[in-house]
Amino acid sequence: MVEMVAMRDAYGQALVDLGDRDARVVAVDADLASSSKMDLFAEAFPERFFQIGIAEANMTGIAAGLAVMGFIPFTSTFASFATCRAADQIRVSIAQPNLTVVIGGAYGGVLAGKTGKSHQAIEDMAIMRAMPNMTVLAPGDGVEVRKAVFAVADHDGPVYLRMSRDPSPVVFDDSCEFKIGRAVLVREGRDVTVITTGIMLGRAVEAAELLAARGISVHLLHVHTVKPLDVAAVAAAAEKTGLVVTAEEHNIIGGLGGAVAEALGEHRPTPMKRVGVADVYSESAPNDDLLQKYGLTAGHIAQAARSLMERRAAHAQP
């Protein structure tokens, strides 16, 4: 049985441990700390926790002011509100002056506790990626979330840290290396390359197993840093098999699929399929139903890989 851990639980504990080690770490919340699990930090360090209420723009500006004063602020709200409602505050007060603020994106993707499209985030990575100076992280499991929290504290400049709400498979162990900007080769393969980010990692591992059972060998690259993209690793992974499937719980426009297509288009044009939300708004429903309807399961990744292989085979016919 695969161990399951919610990224937000890992996040809350990591914040506490980081806060214990580094007095510069402060936290600002827009009335969602019990959801983001920043409440653990609030309990541990009440003097370094600031409850701003339901006012994401103000929270974001306050974080900027704390960053100017030499603190390392982590903000707490849902990914959708953090990146859409407070986009201009992030842009002008954080990204333009290149301040070190960690914008926490809780409930990234479509699994937002049956809340529906207003609370789901499928544009967040695209918006954050378009801002100069911004680093965009989408760790693949709870272990990576913890490593990311410690990594950003040593990083200069703004970071968007995207996380998922519900328990997801633990893929890595504590010995894994997490370096901002460096992709992780999860599995060597020869037939088709799958490139994942965020919570899709676990589903991609499952897809690789499904495909292996049919004799298809998957080369699996995990991209926890969507920006700056590890272009060399992406190009090498594409070169390995000549076919690329990207997988993300995000709109297929502007996120990982977009980033990989841009990089490969310039460096190593490769046939691709993008698995993700197909530029539509989702709805509220049980998790499994959402993943199925919006094309985000292991089966969808496997299907995309097979169709790429079939297309290649058809082209190879004399």
Partner: peptide, 11 residues
Amino acid sequence: QGLSVGLGMAL
């Protein structure tokens, strides 16, 4: 945006 930032600085 300035007053929010000033508030953060004051904190």
